[in-house]
Nucleic acid binder design. Sequence first.
DNA 1: GACATCTACGACGATACGTAGTAGATCGTA
DNA 2: TACGATCTACTACGTATCGTCGTAGATGTC
Lengths: 132, 132
Amino acid sequence: MTSEEKAPRPLGDLERLVMEQLWAASEALTVRQVHERVATTRDLAYTTVMTVLDRLAKKELTERERDGKAWRYRAAAPREELAVDLMRDALDRAGDRREALVRFVGQVSDEEAALLREALAKLDGDTSGRAG
Amino acid sequence: MTSEEKAPRPLGDLERLVMEQLWAASEALTVRQVHERVATTRDLAYTTVMTVLDRLAKKELTERERDGKAWRYRAAAPREELAVDLMRDALDRAGDRREALVRFVGQVSDEEAALLREALAKLDGDTSGRAG
DNA sequence: GACATCTACGACGATACGTAGTAGATCGTA
DNA sequence: TACGATCTACTACGTATCGTCGTAGATGTC
């Protein structure tokens, strides 16, 4: 049995839009604040935003703290971390990891290849723990 | 507007199980053949397998060709390609690609890091076209 | 106390997916 | 030729997720 973890469902469109507000904000936002920002693009009811935020919290993609009678939401993890989780998950489901990585590297842009080399270079001398 | 392609939905569990049979097979398989293989693990109706195969074909994850009155299905792309598509998609949705790649590289196992280096090395001297 | 603001909870439609039944074409064979 | 096996096509139903809100009720402000 090859590790059968639960695949992280990709976000729906509205969920993503809401998460983007949180990621873009430097502070935790109230439902109203998120609604205001989202409203510049889409005409949504206040409660719709509230529901989405609530569902995201249940999925532990956001965290919330009380602020008076309102909640303030913040992203539970940076956007890039969520992306990496999805990348890992995809890689884990690939049959041949070597093959997958070769394909991946073969598809990235020159710029991304450079970033990868850079990141790999950083690993040298960096002896912090990594999974084996 | 950052390129808003349709996110490739991850496969459902049964869909994945079926795809695995196709990926594992050297030849295109009939519904019956897939059913036989899957039946060693799960008790499913023949038509269930047929439906799944049909849906996968509509999603263009499988291709089919006539063989007498039956269809033969084969995976439209190798397993690793599907994985890479998902990785690309995840990376594209990351805010800061550099940050995402750094995190990604920081999370892979030593073995995977080695594979990445290897794959990147192959890019040198390989002047085949890549996206910019 | 009247009004604004928030949350909690429920709801409904759409879509994806797991799961399967039935009808009807086709093919081999007694 | 009529029979049974095999296949596809089409339909269907239950559950889960997500987009989208509405209503009820608590609380805070003048």
